[in-house]
Nucleic acid binder design. Structure first.
Lengths: 327, 327
DNA sequence: AACATAAATGTAATCGATTTCATAAAATGT
DNA sequence: ACATTTTATGAAATCGATTACATTTATGTT
């Protein structure tokens, strides 16, 4: 491996001068610069970021932790993070955690070990102690999911309000038997959206029936499909479904159609996230749009500010109800 | 920041001993070990991987470059890579390149700069010179996409054969007017699958008609939808479509149904990839399954072997035709 | 007790860069 | 031509770990 020493030797200068050329710092005579650059070329020198980072104690790398890359929900957020980070001279690395504490620990350690400067966390809080342990010593922000009791900065939307509006919409178009397809309540959004669902029912004096509520461990389509199948087995079938994610809603629609029922005539369906697929289904899916790209940008800005030692404030962004054919 | 020196001082030993405790290397007396561990605890010492990596000149990090994380095609491959890498003590980092040479360069440089030990590349070859420049000096393997003329090891499937079988299936069930929805031929798979399509037509003495071939720049659903719309504008409409990806096929189905036609009765559709969505559509999509998880495992093994200085051989894995309702 | 051997620990060099401070060389002023 | 300021460069310390080699301490043998 070619080192800065060999370049210095070849160019007949000191390593200090080579370093100056490398970082186009201060004043280096044109003639020397050219000689050094030639030596770099000839030797195909590639500076080691390890040496540099060790000296500067920064890596300009951001870690983005997501439970699963296969979930289309994260796509736009990541785009926002990426664009913002790159514009500020940081690179991002995606880390899939599977919500697995062990995997998470690996990536947390990358920050502890200065391989990365900070973390944007989109996982639900798995191990509160580990998280706060890290947060107390290293830059970290939460995006979308966050810990209610904690003091880690976050950016998110008002999930309860959004769910409330979605269910209210279902009720207003004439459905009095609204079911809920939820995910594991380890997710904060799951808890909040259930609250919004219940709040809307209460407001219209509708009963909160556990026979119309399902919780699925599987975040994929199959989860929605299974939940819907189970709901349709009830003697008293719902005539509308609020699903906490588009993916689940699409699975639910599949099952409804499989049983020969029509969306929205027999059962109306509403999703959450406005993933790109939600426009490809038949019928197209009514859903809640989150400002995902903006959430990404915001969280990137927050973490970079934190790395630079600034104080940052948590933010709640606006969402929007997108009414389409399924309701 | 707490360093190994401070720990050594606190424990009343040398840094060498602390390092030995850290790496549970060689022989350290139980009593000393405990003293050191206590000091580490008390000071909340977190070793810097930078120092370590610099000395050992390895990072145990693998970069995985994909054009877009939103493409569900990559999901299973990444799972395979991840599982294999972790079992061998490597961590992986996902890098989204957008097939953008600039982004790619950033990640290539991470390897040049020893921030990562090697790269698994799933991008089409954008800049042949850069690629071979990197490959000549650092470990890299290609997965799925690869450079036909190059000498970089790869793992992939026989795209031409798979496409040939798909189209043959369409013809055998009675369709003589088979259209092709393809992507940009910068992708090797696009070139190969077109060849397979043409080969099947030739074998059955069917003409290769450019009026039934479309190439879309957009890899999302909309791309498939637009291509299908354009195909349906032809005076002489096809009665079957081979689409080089499930995502495009789903877009195409959407458009067919939008125009009041039935799949597969009026137009049969076949996709490629067997993404999880392909089972959620109505009708379910006939497709070609690639051994994605295995491709992931294989490419991870290959890159790790390469990093360890071993010679590795390219591999072509088997695919499978999955016949469902759309044909 | 004396010696040989094994185990435990320390010293100092090392990895590859950056940077402070000192010094040499060039430019400028009188 | 000489003093002074400015500019360019080099020597050596530094970042935080690991490790070869040296040295000390412990253990066993006769």
């Amino acid at each position: 491996m070619v080192t800065i020493q060999e370049v210095a030797k070849k160019a007949g200068v000191s390593t200090a001068t080579v370093s100056r050329v490398l970082n186009n710092r201060e004043t280096v005579k044109e003639k020397t610069r050219i000689r050094v650059e030639q030596a770099i070329q000839e030797l195909k020198y590639e500076p080691s970021a390890l040496g540099r980072n060790l000296r500067n104690s920064e890596s300009r790398l951001l870690l983005v932790l997501i439970p699963s890359i296969s979930n289309p929900f994260y796509t736009e957020i990541i785009n926002g993070i990426e664009d913002t980070a790159i514009s500020k001279g940081y690179n991002i690395l995606l880390c899939e955690t599977d919500s697995n504490p062990k995997r998470e620990a690996i990536y947390f350690n990358m920050v502890r070990n200065r391989l990365a400067d900070g973390i944007i966390l989109m996982d639900p809080t798995v191990n509160r102690k580990n998280l706060y342990d890290l947060a107390s010593r290293h830059p970290i922000v939460q995006c979308s999911e966050f810990d209610e009791q904690g003091e880690i900065s976050y950016v998110t939307i008002d999930n309860e309000l959004a769910a409330y509006q979605a269910v209210k919409h279902l009720i207003k178009i004439g459905n009095r038997k609204v079911a809920l397809i939820n995910t594991d309540e380890k997710y904060l959004y799951a808890r909040e959206r259930r609250r919004g669902y219940e709040k809307a029912l209460q407001e219209f004096d509708l009963p909160i029936e556990s026979k119309w509520m399902r919780e699925t461990g599987h975040l994929g389509f199959e989860g929605g499909q299974q939940a819907m199948r189970s709901l349709l087995n009830e003697a008293d079938k719902p005539n509308a479904v609020f699903s906490v994610s588009d993916v689940l809603a699409i699975g639910a629609m599949k099952e409804i159609q499989l049983q020969g029922l029509k969306v929205p005539d027999d059962i109306a369906v509403i999703g959450f996230d406005k993933i790109s697929f939600s426009n490809m289904t038949n019928p197209t899916l009514t859903t809640i749009a989150q400002p995902m790209y903006k959430m990404g940008c915001t969280s990137a800005n927050m973490i970079i500010n934190k790395i630079r030692g600034k104080e940052v404030e948590s933010l709640i962004l606006d969402h929007e109800l997108i009414i389409r054919e399924s309701t």
